[in-house]
Design a protein around this nucleic acid. Structure first.
Lengths: 350, 350
DNA sequence: TAATAAAGCCGAAACGTTTCGGTTTAACAA
DNA sequence: TTGTTAAACCGAAACGTTTCGGCTTTATTA
């Protein structure tokens, strides 16, 4: 009598399928993967047996043999407090999933606290052979990840990278909407237009700041005061305190993202100013929060999900051995909230 | 002359290490995994050689052989619009990472649109052998996942499950803070206290609603009007329109989460009511947004990160063959914002 | 009809580990 | 000295695929 206590369901392997169909293992493999070299008739028979036995290919066996993992990696470098109020990754991940899940790929997600750890994570993902490729975002000027992935020979797609980094890239240009936002303020009569930027080392901070600056130059306006923020609400608030207590304070401020804009507005309110009567504010991202607050924010709505879809498609192509061209998606579109108004005529003291 | 064009860096395997150290493959394996059966001397020699050759064990080989993947899975069932403004998963994932990364585990993250797809994802994660275990959250009454993971024999840890589902569980009890919030309103003289709940099928909706109801009963107060929301901002706004246009409207409302509370407050404002003078509002979660709005929200701050850490530790134990006890973390603590005030003395008409 | 090509199929190796039973060596007790 | 035991070490199998060279069979061409 067999001992049933320790009986474990044995996995149905491709060997079982091959035996059941009366063919060689290699034929079963070819048939099930739709590769040539097996007649239609036997192909069907094998497929039928596989179905009948409930065969599900083992990812483990497959990846050892094929040297592929059918996974892609994303490392998010974020302070937890920031991550909580950052809607970017939710939609970015959704976009990735939309593409890769159809190809039976999965996403490995990691979170890191600083640049050093981020590099370590990417390195380990590659050395462990955990992923076939990775996404890179929030690139820095001279981002070390660029050379790392070359050193590791790791397929990668970057988001809003710079050409100089020579990475496969998908871009949603920010300079167009930042120009539009700045010109929107100019049209309203503002002449002293400040900027709350992100940390200087980020490429995207730079692009945004640059677009703001160039637009002012082209309109022969002074380059208003600038505050280097950190993309957080608190940072935006600090910016308000730093920029708006000055006699010569700007009458309008272009913020590098929505969260800082919201913080900036709150900071202005705390200082006793009204938005948009005393000061106009714009953001960038188009997060939900920008419609929850009053005044609602004038901003530009980006599309992380679309960005992610394109990036994922590119990565899939690279993993398949292709060399896809860089892609571009349409720029963010302006969202007309209530945080922008006419330039105040005279200066009030607060 | 060797052809260098197609030369690929060959991976350093444990066989190379064994050869270099002059031992059998099996000894090298034992040594590198700190298993007994190898002398200290040779252990050192093997480790040295491994270091020297830059040996990194192949996860692929390891997982095929050991039948482990060193990955855990999480399926997030969320509409993308909701996901964007949901800070829960950011911190939840952070908590998971904090525990599993030290054990060289990685997180596989998937997103699904509906219940059916969610089940499919969990099933596939298991059948593919992609993960060693999974997390389950936002459980429903009679959640189908419970039997699925039993059928699949898949290690799992649930978040705020019900005992009836018989899942390893980690809980942060919501009834305590909901009682406290309700009593806070009662202390302020409110006698008509409504509730904006989450969808009825969720266990956590039920717990929150129940705590509110029981507290009212114990204080011999009428069970105020209830609106079944959907945990979104828009849902909260709708709730305000539904509940607050009535003559006999409540003077205070306990919302099942912050996002609905924020929407509710905006809805009240749109109706011309002041918070907290005309109506008091409470939330639950303690998201950053609750401090960005005015009035700031009276709420209770939950700790998804802590929850996740405990859950991840439990899952690691289960994966190691243990049978851990259910865990509980301290309940959310009340955050005193400005959205609660004394009950208005007379009824105003709007 | 014989030579050739192509399609269909097979067997075996390879991927890089873990695991397990067996053999050798060393240490110790009788 | 000899027998016993445990520790150290080894060899081979197993995990479940993919891949590749070679063998049959059938179809095609001269």
């Amino acid at each position: 009598m067999p001992d049933r206590t320790n009986e474990r369901k044995k996995r149905v392997t491709i060997v079982d399928v091959a035996k059941a169909a009366g063919v060689a293992l290699s034929s079963a493999s070819a048939a099930l993967n739709n590769r040539p070299g097996v007649s239609n008739e036997t192909r069907k028979r094998i497929a039928a047996k596989a179905e009948e036995l409930g065969y599900a290919p083992s990812l483990r066996g497959r990846s050892l043999s094929s040297k592929r993992t059918f996974s892609v990696g994303l490392v998010i470098q974020r302070d937890i407090d920031v991550l909580e109020s950052d809607p970017f990754f939710g939609s970015f991940i959704t976009g990735i999933e939309e593409v890769i899940s159809h190809r039976d790929y999965a996403l490995v997600l990691q979170i890191s606290k600083n640049e050093e750890e981020t590099l370590e994570r990417y390195r380990k993902l590659s050395l462990d052979g955990r992923v076939d490729g990775v996404f890179l975002n929030e690139l820095r000027i001279n981002d070390e990840r660029a050379e790392l992935i070359k050193e590791l020979d790791l397929p990668a797609v970057a988001i809003n990278s710079a050409d100089s980094l020579k990475l496969p890239n998908v871009r949603q240009d920010a300079s167009v909407p930042f120009r539009q936002l700045t010109e929107l303020l100019i049209e309203q009569g503002h002449t002293r237009i400040g900027h709350v930027s992100g940390p200087r080392e980020f490429l995207h901070s730079f692009v945004r700041e640059h677009a703001w600056e160039e637009t002012l130059k082209q309109h022969c306006l002074p380059i208003g005061p600038i505050f280097t923020g950190d993309f957080t609400y608190e940072g935006g608030k600090k910016a308000a305190f730093a920029l708006m207590r000055d006699k010569n304070r700007p009458t309008a401020v272009v913020c590098s993202n929505d969260l800082m804009a919201v913080g900036f507005i709150q900071g202005c309110k705390d200082l006793g100013m009204r938005v948009p009567q005393d000061v106009s504010v714009t953001g960038y991202d188009g997060i939900a929060l920008s419609t929850y607050i009053r005044p609602t924010l004038v901003t530009a709505k980006t599309n992380p999900r679309h960005l992610a879809r394109e990036a994922a498609e590119m990565l899939m192509q690279i993993v398949d051995g292709g060399q896809p061209q860089n892609r571009t998606i349409p720029p963010a579109t302006i969202v007309y909230g209530n945080s922008v108004g006419k330039a105040p005529r005279a200066e009030n003291n607060f």
